[in-house]
Nucleic acid binder design. Structure first.
Length: 865
RNA sequence: GGGCAACUAGCUCAGUUGGUUAGAGCGCUUCGUUUACACCGAAGAGGUCGUAGGUUCGAAUCCUACGUUGCCCACCA
């Protein structure tokens, strides 16, 4: 009975249901008077998302923080939600419709959006259900979606405010255009990949010009050289006329610092419409802009005879034409950095387009200052540097997307004057204005574009609490305490939340940013679904239990550091969970079967030899009881301290070590000899509390065996106390002696069944004999106290010499120890002889070294008697 | 081109402001079904902390170079 391994199946789901039904995920329903508020905003996963280990890591850490602070008695809110994920969701639904042969252009915007909402209705809870299965104790009654009416209201309010302040503007500028997604992208959504290609050297009159994109040469509007380059000084400011693949052309020669004289030939063709650097030069020198690549990835009408060709075709044609005219000097293999769409992976075309932009500098400045002033702290700290660097070099943010799924830009254009060929000033408003302020017209149409998904997520911490309304939640829970996220969305999201929150909520969005690492596969590669190298957390949870998954994602990891995960690791923590389960079974058995034996054996008064056990403390408790209670209190202090400092791994590791190696390996074994079920139960329940944030299911399940009416989730966190040093000293001697005897037995190949007489002698003999029973059983020995040392000892520990009764003395195993001791003593003596050391080192350190030397010498003497 | 991180036992990783004879898990070796647990217990082997210098009484820990790997940022055509 009760001998079965822990089976999480059938345990986790009812427990989660009970938690949720209790209402305690909601801070308003928590019992007791809770003054201090603690809140975390959950980074909203994409509605299209499927739970991966990255989510699981974040959810686990956030849940640890949430459960910990709830147990501390704080008014704790963890607010969940999902993100509409503009591009990702639109692509997904488009593909879905395509399988039915429907294109979104056929059905139109309104019908398409109905399909997307229907999809969201159907599958949008998948990700939140998965988050529930991880045990997340977030307040589902406050769940939000970025396109909820109140969040949409927040987005509109934010946009209109920025618009009216002149921080949002519309303009024709060079942007990143994904020809596949058919939308503009922000700089962040573009990933540069080193791509092997060619460097073409083309004859431009007197110059040789190197380029990787010869097809853009039909869009050239200048040639540029470095102002300091003596080779070309005489050309600067002049116009040159030269032969091209399509006839003769005249271009000005400008001087610009952007040109690197060492690269290529030091002469650059300038194509302002299709290259960021060229665009910048074009602005500086007021160059004409000639767009030759269109949004459809084909050459435009301005490209002359190459018009309507695909970009790649145009390139081949131009090269052929140049060759025919002997204008191509040479081709070199060359690897250059080519922009790709972060979403779909196709090549991004830089081109000029009319888009909405957010002026970022006025927002970035306070966002920088807040972190500099430590109003926001990053854990680990090094990410502040990365944040600063990015913030300082940030450029205006292209916020409009040519998508249908998202927040439609709340800007209205008057149509009436348009007929007369005039344009009125656009108006930013939630609804169409009644009357045009410019012309009195009454017909308006709304801007067709939507906002970048990250515009709405940037408002997340406060829009979910009710902003722009002045709600109680906003007042109570904002700023949030911690933002827990991965480093890969530091710029996308964290930086923008800081800017927006300072702008609109007039305070920081969170006080600490905790950054976890990415989960890598066991070969150290980023997990990838397409490559099949990923571990899917849900089947793993099914197999090993959710608690084991949670532990494997937190223990043995460091903040900000990517870490590897393997199934073996998860199995290891499953074993630990099983250990906890079995300790629970043992505790039950002790309580039920041995209630009469709870009083410990009578104690002899201890002399302790100075600094021993505090006499009054613990009354009738045994040395083992005192030891475990002492260690237990150290554990409470450590776990609390680690959690306060976001050292989740250290906290979990301390628990793992204590529960397995102190509680199970020693104290439980001693309970079989010297039961004290009161202490046992107390220590165990304290462990359940400390472990609960990490492994909520098993701890709650075990807790409710003895506390049917209460929930561990809302029990009080154990209190930290000052540690009295030395309270464990006497028991440590017993432990050492047992280990030493076991060691000797193993070396001498004494089988475990065989109980052997062990002779002990020395000053501590009397004290140790008090716990004779423990030593004899755990070391499988019969202790024989002896007046004096009768032969060479097999060991010296804890103030006694001991030797085993063996037909022949075999002391070989001691040789190594003796030689180690000798070496150590020599090193210590040298150290202490060094006057520089004794002079400079703190006295505590010196004294400690002296003490260690004395101990080693004494031990050596005992062993060589 | 700039920057960041990692390099510690066969493998995966700790090592909290420099101070015990550098730790854990897995794996390995030997032994063991002792009434919580074989998803277990006991004992053990295994590391000159990437390399070379430097600072210091003292360095895995601080500084400087270098090497290897990974990542981020960047307008080098």
């Amino acid at each position: 009975m009760g001998n079965e391994a822990y089976n999480h199946l059938g345990i986790e789901e009812p427990i989660y249901k009970r938690w949720e039904a209790s209402g305690y995920f909601n801070p308003d329903k928590l019992p007791g008077r809770r003054k201090k508020a603690f809140s975390i905003s959950m980074p909203p996963p994409n509605v299209t998302g499927e739970l991966h280990l990255g989510h699981a890591t974040g959810i686990t850490i956030q849940d640890i923080l949430t459960r910990y602070h709830r147990m501390l008695g704080e008014k704790t809110l963890w607010l969940p939600g999902t993100d509409h994920a503009g591009i990702a969701t639109q692509i997904l639904v488009e593909r879905l419709l395509q399988t039915e042969g429907i294109s979104r252009h056929e059905i139109g915007r309104e019908t398409f959006l109905k399909h997307v909402w229907a999809w969201k209705q159907k599958y949008g809870t998948r990700i939140t259900d998965q988050i529930r299965s991880l045990g997340a104790s977030c307040d589902w009654s406050r769940e939000h979606f970025t396109m909820d009416p109140n969040l949409t209201q927040a987005v509109q309010k934010a946009f209109i405010t920025l618009f009216n302040e002149g921080l949002i503007y519309r303009g024709e500028r060079l942007i990143n255009w994904c020809t596949r997604c058919q939308t503009a992208l922000s700089d962040l959504e573009v990933k540069h990949k080193d791509t092997p290609g060619h460097l073409y050297y083309i004859k431009y009159g007197p110059f040789s010009v190197a380029t990787t994109r010869p097809e853009t040469k039909v869009g050239d509007t200048a040639l540029a050289v470095n102002p300091k380059d003596p080779r070309y000084k005489k050309y600067v400011g002049k116009k040159i006329t030269f032969e091209t693949e399509s006839g003769s052309l005249t271009l000005p020669v400008i001087a610009d610092r952007l040109v690197d004289p060492k690269f290529g030939t030091g002469v650059v063709k300038v194509t302002p419409a299709h290259d960021p650097a060229d665009w910048e030069m074009g602005e500086r020198h007021k160059l004409p802009i000639k767009q030759v690549v269109g949004e459809d990835n084909r050459m435009t009408g301005s490209a002359g005879k190459y018009a309507s060709l695909l970009v790649s075709q145009a390139r081949d044609r131009i090269i052929a034409d140049l060759q025919a005219k002997h204008l191509l000097i040479k081709i070199e293999p060359y690897t250059s950095s080519v922009p790709h769409c972060d979403r779909c992976g196709s090549i991004v075309q830089p081109l000029v387009s009319k888009q909405w932009f957010l002026k970022i500098a006025p927002l970035a400045k306070p966002a920088l200052a807040a972190v500099k002033a430590d109003k926001i702290k990053f854990v680990p700290e090094r990410f502040e540097k990365i944040y600063f660097h990015w913030m300082k070099n940030i450029r205006d943010w292209c916020i409009s997307r040519q998508l249908w799924w998202g927040h439609q830009i709340p800007v209205w254009y008057c149509q009436d004057n348009l007929k007369k060929g005039k344009t009125c000033a656009p108006v930013a408003a939630t609804l169409a204005p009644n009357k045009c302020q410019t012309c009195g017209g009454t017909h308006f149409i709304q801007d067709q574009d939507t906002l970048d998904t990250w515009f709405s997520s940037g408002l997340w911490t406060f829009s979910t609490l009710g902003w722009p309304n002045k709600t109680k939640d906003l007042k109570t829970f904002h700023p949030t305490a911690v933002m827990e996220t991965a480093w890969d969305i530091l710029f996308f999201w964290v930086a923008r939340m800081i800017m927006f929150s300072l702008k609109f909520a007039h305070e920081v969005p969170f006080k600490t940013v905790f950054i976890h690492g990415l989960v890598l596969d066991k070969d150290g590669k980023k997990m990838s679904k397409s490559k099949g190298t990923g571990i899917d957390p849900l089947p793993m949870a099914e197999k090993y239990g959710t608690d084991a998954i949670r532990l494997s994602l937190v223990l043995g990891t460091t903040a900000g550091q990517d870490f590897r995960l393997s199934e073996e690791k998860i199995a290891g923590y499953r074993n630990f969970i099983n250990k906890v389960w079995n300790i629970g079974n043992f505790v039950d058995r002790q309580i039920n079967s041995a209630p009469a034996r709870t009083s410990p054996p009578a104690r002899l008064p201890r002399n302790g030899g100075g600094g021993g056990v505090p006499a009054g403390r613990g009354g009738g408790s045994s040395l083992a009881d005192q030891w475990i209670l002492h260690k237990q209190q150290i554990l409470v202090n450590q776990v609390t301290e680690h959690l306060n400092k976001f050292r989740f791994s250290d906290a979990g590791q301390a628990l793992y070590d204590f529960i397995w190696h102190d509680l199970a390996d020693w104290y439980v074994e001693i309970q079989k000899i010297q039961p004290n079920s009161k202490v046992l139960l107390g220590v165990f329940q304290s462990c359940l509390k400390l472990l609960h944030p990490f492994a909520p299911f098993i701890t709650e399940s075990l807790w409710q065996r003895h506390n049917k009416k209460t929930q561990l989730m809302i029990s009080d966190w154990p209190k930290t106390k000052k540690i009295k040093p030395g309270a464990d000293k006497e028991f440590l001697k017993i432990q050492k002696l047992i280990i030493a005897i076991r060691n000797s037995r193993a070396v001498h190949k004494i089988t475990p069944q065989e109980k052997v007489p062990v002779y002990i002698t020395g000053s501590a003999t009397k004290a140790l004999m008090v716990d004779k029973g423990i030593i004899e059983i755990l070391a499988r020995a019969i202790l024989v106290p002896t007046a004096k040392l009768e032969r060479k000892a097999h060991g010296h520990e804890a103030g006694v010499n001991f030797w085993l009764e063996l037909p022949e003395a075999s002391l070989e195993h001691l040789h190594k120890e003796v030689s180690n001791l000798k070496n150590y003593i020599k090193a210590q003596e040298n150290k202490l002889k060094n006057s520089q050391f004794t002079k400079n080192a703190p006295t505590v350190v010196v004294d400690n070294e002296k003490k260690k030397l004395a101990e080693a010498k004494f031990k050596l003497k005992q062993l060589t008697k």
